[in-house]
Simulated assay, not measured.
Amino acid sequence: MRLSYRIGTAALLIVAIILIKRHLDLVQDDSRVQSGWSFNGISGGSDSSVPVASESKNDANAPAADSKDGFSVVGDANKDQSAADGDDDIALGSRPVYETTPIIVPNDRVIVMAKLSAEDTAWVSNDLADWRNYIYTVDDVNAAKHTPMNKGRESLAYLQYIIEHYDDLPSTIVFIHSHRDGYPGAWHTDTMDYSNVDSIRALQTDFVQRNGYANLRCQLSPGCPDEIRPFRNPPQSGQTTERVYAQAWKELFNNTDVPEVVAVACCSQFAVSREQVLQRPLSDYQWFYEWVLTTPLSDKLAGGVMEYTWHIIFGQDPVYCPDAYQCYEDVYGNPYFW
Rank of each mutant, 00 (worst) to 15 (best):
T189A: 14
H177F: 07
G182Q: 11
F231A: 07
N196A: 02
C224R: 09
N211K: 07
K151F: 04
A144I: 14
W187H: 13
P184Y: 04
Y213T: 06
I200W: 01
H165R: 09
R201N: 15
T172E: 02
S195M: 00
A157S: 15
I173D: 07
S199G: 01
Q209I: 14
D140W: 05
H188K: 13
T240N: 08
D198G: 02
N196C: 00
V174M: 05
V174D: 03
R180G: 03
H146P: 05
M149L: 14
Q239G: 02
G152R: 03
Q236V: 11
Y183M: 10
C218Q: 08
D140C: 05
Q204R: 14
N196E: 00
K151H: 06
P222M: 12
K145F: 12
V208Q: 04
S195E: 05
N142G: 09
P184A: 02
Y194M: 02
L156G: 08
P230S: 10
Q209G: 08
P222Q: 13
L203N: 11
Q219P: 01
D226S: 14
I162F: 09
V174Y: 06
T172S: 08
H177V: 07
P225N: 12
A214G: 08
W187N: 12
L156E: 07
T240V: 13
D139I: 06
E164G: 00
L216S: 02
T137A: 05
T147V: 10
I173P: 04
T191V: 04
R217F: 04
T205Q: 15
D206V: 08
I162N: 03
Q219M: 11
H179F: 10
A143D: 13
T240Y: 12
L220C: 03
L156D: 04
C224K: 09
N211E: 15
S155D: 05
L220E: 13
A144Q: 14
S199K: 10
I173R: 02
T172D: 07
S237C: 01
W187T: 12
T189G: 02
H165A: 09
S171D: 15
Y166F: 15
F175C: 07
I200Q: 09
R201W: 11
Q204D: 15
I173N: 05
H179P: 00
D168Y: 09
D140H: 02
Y194P: 00
D190I: 11
R180E: 15
S221W: 14
H146T: 12
K145D: 11
Q209D: 13
Y166P: 03
L159V: 08
L220G: 12
L220V: 08
Q204N: 15
S195H: 03
D167I: 10
T241W: 09
P184W: 08
R180W: 01
A214P: 01
V141I: 15
V138R: 08
P225C: 06
P235F: 11
Q236S: 14
Q160D: 09
K145Y: 11
H165S: 11
R153M: 13
P230D: 05
P230T: 11
I162S: 04
R217S: 02
K145H: 13
